[in-house]
């Protein structure tokens, strides 16, 4: 269900995005950082769904706060001539890997549980 939503959303976004007008080159770095923030939010959302503590308010506020803060950092960095947006990218990507680990562990555990159950069943059948 959740993955279906993500796939449908991605397709919809891609269709709109392909037909959308090009933005000004100056703002492309802001859009890039917003894209990274959105990617981080999606990963975070999936992992919280798996941990069963997904909260819509936290999810949405997290995305907007992250995106706005990182854009402000980008702006500040441009003014100070320091690439501060790199810090935001490091944090986002680091969190993405953490969340990926959680997602991976969840599915690997599920899978190995399944295999163990099957083996137990087989053993039970053999002993009979």
């Amino acid at each position: 269900m959740v993955y279906l939503g993500i796939i449908l959303g991605s397709l919809l976004g891609a269709i709109i995005g392909v037909n959308a007008p090009v933005i000004s080159y100056t703002y492309s770095s802001y859009l890039a950082i917003a894209v990274i923030a959105a990617l981080d939010s999606v990963f975070g959302g999936i992992s919280s769904v798996l941990k069963k503590n997904f909260d819509l308010k936290i999810f949405l506020s997290g995305f907007f706060c992250n995106a706005i803060l990182s854009m402000l950092l980008t702006y500040l960095g441009e003014k100070l001539n320091v690439d501060i947006y790199l810090a935001a990218i490091v944090v986002f990507v680091g969190r993405m890997f953490t969340n990926l680990t959680i997602i991976r562990r969840y599915y690997v555990d599920k899978w190995s549980d399944k295999i163990q159950k099957k083996e137990k069943n087989n053993q039970a059948l053999e002993s009979k």
């Binding site: 939503g5 993500i6 959303g9 991605s10 397709l11 919809l12 976004g13 891609a14 709109i16 995005g17 392909v18 959308a20 090009v22 933005i23 492309s28 859009l31 890039a32 917003a34 894209v35 959105a38 990617l39 939010s41 999606v42 959302g45 999810f59 995305f63």
Partner: peptide, 12 residues
Amino acid sequence: MSAILTYGICVQ
């Protein structure tokens, strides 16, 4: 969220 994400990627 993923719609926004892919939209952003495409425009970028």
